[in-house]
């Protein structure tokens, strides 16, 4: 039985899971310098122990509506590394590390809570709740780089 270990993160009332092997660390909110002229969910760059690390708002990234109701003091940055990219994800809270049976991860319905199906690996039950297993490769993939180019083109006309 293959086990899947996930760091569980909360955004609003929803639970998201990132594979534990992709999570480098969990940080308190950092001082973020905004990067002008880029996608809105890219909040900027932060000094993570001497390394300049981009930080994105996971809530915006996965397309959840509304604003976070949690103050900056309580929010956390989950630093993940995927495909040689190190990126911080802002979440409302980090809860736990859970082990789930890989077989218990069900394929995602076409659209879950506004999150496009390509960005998740599936849905699993954790206790009473449902956890969305994030596909971080997709979330941070070059599609975004292409989008950045797109933004730039628009800017330059």
């Amino acid at each position: 039985m293959a086990e899947l270990q996930c760091v569980t993160m909360r955004i609003g009332d929803e639970l998201y899971g990132a594979r534990v092997e992709q999570v480098m660390s969990v940080e308190r909110m950092l001082d973020i310098s905004p990067v002008p002229r880029t996608l809105s969910y890219i909040k900027g760059v932060a000094n993570l122990r001497g390394t300049v690390t981009p930080v994105i708002d996971l809530r915006e990234r996965v397309g959840l509506r509304g604003q976070s109701e949690v103050g900056d003091d309580a929010r956390r940055i989950v630093v993940v590394e995927v495909d040689e990219m190190t990126v911080g994800l802002i979440v409302d809270a980090v809860e736990d590390v859970v082990s789930i049976d890989e077989a218990a991860v069900e394929p995602a319905p076409a659209v879950v809570g506004g999150l496009q199906a390509v960005y998740l690996d599936g849905v699993a039950r954790v206790g009473e709740r449902l956890m969305v297993v994030l596909n971080l490769e997709r979330i941070l993939s070059d599609v975004e780089v292409a989008q950045l180019h797109e933004v730039e083109k628009q800017v330059r006309g």
Partner: peptide, 24 residues
């Protein structure tokens, strides 16, 4: 700025200032 922000052309990098703050 790292691979993730490769597409950002206006900034060639960033530096960490004396107070730990990042300046592009």
């Amino acid at each position: 700025l790292g691979k993730y922000l490769e597409g950002v052309k206006v900034f060639s990098g960033a530096t960490i200032l004396g107070d730990g703050h990042v300046a592009l």
